[in-house]
Design a protein around this nucleic acid. Sequence first.
DNA 1: GATGGGGCCTCTAGTCACTGGAGGTTCAAG
DNA 2: CTTGAACCTCCAGTGACTAGAGGCCCCATC
Lengths: 158, 158
Amino acid sequence: MAHYSIGALSRATGVKPTTIRWYEGEGLLPAPVRSEGGHRVYGDAELRRLGFIRHARELGFDMAAIRQLLGLADQPDSDCTAAHAAATAQVAAIDAKLRQLGALRAELVRLAAACEGGRAGECRILETLADHAHHGCADPSHGRVDAASSHSTSALLG
Amino acid sequence: MAHYSIGALSRATGVKPTTIRWYEGEGLLPAPVRSEGGHRVYGDAELRRLGFIRHARELGFDMAAIRQLLGLADQPDSDCTAAHAAATAQVAAIDAKLRQLGALRAELVRLAAACEGGRAGECRILETLADHAHHGCADPSHGRVDAASSHSTSALLG
DNA sequence: GATGGGGCCTCTAGTCACTGGAGGTTCAAG
DNA sequence: CTTGAACCTCCAGTGACTAGAGGCCCCATC
């Protein structure tokens, strides 16, 4: 069994050392064996687990969802329906985001097209922004490109 | 000229009182007149300015971009090219996000389809996540649905 | 004029998933 | 044995708010 320093694990997975340590603090990775001098020493099990986490993060699962997915993966006899539900919920979340961003994009394109440069006092972009009509956007997480729609994906329970 | 309490301003704009106070602390809104007892009292100028900010936030502009847009709006003689650039940059940011989310969605749908329920030990979802192949995702802000891709939109300077 | 309760005040801390830095120790190559 | 890169811990900061504690103000009603 191979063993890795935190730097080697980082290179192998593409997850930064600081992030690996943070995962450990959060309990996503077990606290590893230490060398005499106190350096972390990892094995293949940690390599796989970290890869799992990274892959799930790339797919947009939040930490709560990942915790549950790891829990499932740790108990091979459990029912994987929850994993399916999580994936489906994540697709739904992405669909919502896609719809929202599409609408946003359309409005921005209209906005950008309306301005031909010149004095800010006559700029249609600035005018439109200043127009204080509440043109009802029901979604509370409005249109932020990087919205912190917070409580998102931990729908494993649903 | 009408005047409003912070609560009235909140109802008029849809921005929460705490957020209004936070904007003031950040310098996006000027510190308003106070009543004898220390309560904030706003006028129509603040109402318009807050509406401007809210609208820009809905379109996904980050605070740095909004600061610049406000600066432009405050100086009617300035050149509004920067506003146009900001809108265009925002469209580009959204396009990137849309592309990324689309790819993500496809992978998730594949993932979800591969699982028919049953033992977690045989779940294709969990297996795929555990598969540690680095299938190169160049974007460092990976696939998070609510990515904090941080330094995003303040491209007014570009 | 007293009272009640809702709105307002400030200040602090928490969110999410990390990231960066300071200040010090360990490891491995030469 | 020396160097310097990598590692250690701890703490603070990111963005854009949000929530809560503990206390003050304001207005309407009695």
